[in-house]
């Protein structure tokens, strides 16, 4: 399976990655190689195999429903670019 320039641009946009126009052919080739590998695996009959959700073969451990976290807002907000009235400020997102 071979990815086109537009595919690479779409994938980059979905991941919010800025990429150099000049690098696109390389990305396309590398990503296509990965897909080719997956393609080859499609040839194997997996009818009777349960899809693996996780490489570790064990169930999820559960925790009790207890509030264990204290308010550390000041600490967290020290590393935020901009805060006001306890809110994190971000560039306006509504149109």
């Amino acid at each position: 399976m071979s990815l086109q320039k537009e595919d690479v641009e779409k994938i980059a946009h979905l991941a919010r990655l800025a990429i150099d126009e000049a690098d696109i052919p390389d990305y396309a080739r590398n990503l296509s190689n990965i897909l080719d590998l997956v393609e080859r695996m499609s040839a194997i009959d997996t009818e009777a195999v349960t899809p693996m959700a996780h490489p570790l073969d064990m169930p999820q451990r559960l925790r009790d429903d207890v509030v264990s976290e204290k308010n550390q807002r000041e600490r967290f907000q020290k590393i935020a670019p901009q805060v006001e009235n306890g809110l994190y400020l971000v560039p306006q997102v509504i149109e």
Partner: peptide, 12 residues
Amino acid sequence: SLHEDFHGMTGI
């Protein structure tokens, strides 16, 4: 998201 006026920014 709070879209009130935060100098043209959005409060989270």
